[in-house]
Every structure is written in C-alpha cells, then in structure tokens.
Amino acid sequence: MPKRIGVGFGLNTRLAWVVLFALLLFGSLLFVDWRHIPNKNAGSGFGTLLTAFLAPDLSIENLQRVTSAVWITVSYAVTSLFLAALIGLPLGVIASGVVIGRSKPLLPLAIATRAWLGLTRSVHELIWALIFVAVVGLSPVAGIAAIALPYSGIIGRIFAERLQDVPDPLIVSVGTAGANGVQSLLLVRIPSVLPDTISYLFYRLECAIRTASVLSFVGLGGIGFQVHIAMSDLKFDTVATLFYSLLLLILIVDLMSRTVRSRILS
C-alpha cells in the first residue's frame, strides 16, 4: 500500500500528541522540589562551566593524567567487549534456534538461553559492578565482568534476532542443494548478518567506552574517576579536557567503524 506523506496527520491528531507531550512534561515537573533548584551556584556556576568548556586545560601535566585515564578506560572497554562478543555471539546462535531449535528436545535450551540473555541485560552495568565489587573486591575483574555480562546479553539477543530474520527463500534454496541446519547457518545466515553485526559491535564498543568511563566511579580508575576528582577540586577546565577526550575516543571508534564497514562492503 503506498504511503501518503504529509497528508496523513490531521490537525487533531497532531494537537493530541502535543498535548500529551506537554502533560507528560509538566506532570513530571510536579514531582520536582522546586524550592531547592536554583543553587547558589546556578548563574555563576553555569558561566564558569561554559568558560571552562570553551578553554579546556591542555597543559602537559594535565594531558598526561588524561591520557593515562583514557588508556585505563579503553582497556576496560576493549577487554569487556571482546569477552562479551566471545560469550554473546555463540549464545545468540543457540538462542536463535536456527540450529538447536530444529530438534524438539533441544528447543527448551534455546528458549532458556533467550531468557537468560534478556535477563542479564535488564540490569544496568553500574549495579552489576556494585554486586561484583561486593563479591570479588576492588579488582579490575569486577569491572570487566560488570560490563561483559549485560553486554553479552544484548549482543546475543540482537544476533539471535538478526539470524532469524534472514529471508527464508535463501535458506530453502541451499536446503534443496543439500545443506543441513549447520551448513545453512555457516553458508547463508552468518554471511548475511556479518556486515551489520560488525557495525553493531563497533557501536557496542562506543557504549563500552562510555560505560567503562562511568564504572571508574566505583574506584577502578579511569575517566569517570578523574572527572569526579576534578569536580570535587572545582577544576572545571580539567573536566572539559576529560569530556573532550571522550569525544575524541568516540570519533575514533566512529571512524574505525566506517572504514571497516566500507571495506567489508567492497
């Protein structure tokens, strides 16, 4: 059915949505304790922050500190993502049921795996971090596990969905040539989803960098930790440098993703 553009939304519908949005916003604002909002810092604070962001601290000493923090955060991000992919992708294959799901007795395994993947992803990494730190102590392992666990969940789930979405005619076609479930997985499903999966993993790397920078709160060192310290010392130009370094990291990952993607497509 051809979609008509620009004509489908009547004035009433649009109005309804605007009203709904406004209600939502203002309704939630009722919850806010307005008396305390304007901090003594409010006006000047904002101004100070703005100046700091326009003129970040680029001294050698600061840059050294920032670089080491960046390196810590990147290490956490890369190692946890690597682990997450290592665990998540195979689990995704199982959860998708494209191979396992064909035999009746093994179907519950696929469903259980699917449930497990969804479960781990429901909880935020910071909460996992608290739990792991309580169990393991303040070790990098706690941080890695806290990121890898939920990330393996979402990676597995997305992978499973993508595998299932491969068009049936392609599968049937190799099936007639004699391919069994595993062969059609290797020859059709995985090659079909590989380019998108690689971009998705790069996106996850981006998220992992952000998450790792936040987890450093918990005491493991990294960008977030340094931001915390800098804010406490009111060194806003340092904070600005740290934020810009995050921006740089994200841009680099974005660039890598685009290069690999264009190369895969060629």
């Binding site: 806010v32 304790d33 305390h36 909002i37 304007p38 901090n39 810092n41 409010a42 604070g45 904002f46 922050l49 910071l126 952000r210 998450t211 920078s213 936040v214 709160f217 960008i223 977030g224 931001v227 915390h228 804010m231 904070v239 934020f243 995050l246 921006l247 990291l249 994200i250 841009l251």
Partner: peptide, 18 residues
C-alpha cells in the same frame, strides 16, 4: 559522547541534586 552519569556530575553543580 559523554555518558549520563558524567553529565550528572556537572549538572549537579549548577542545579541542586534532585
């Protein structure tokens, strides 16, 4: 690029926590 919690550290300085 900056995660929510890090923005929160900055925002809390300007607006009181809440």
């Amino acid at each position: 690029a900056v995660p929510e919690l890090l923005w929160a550290l900055v925002v809390v300085f300007v607006l009181s926590p809440g």
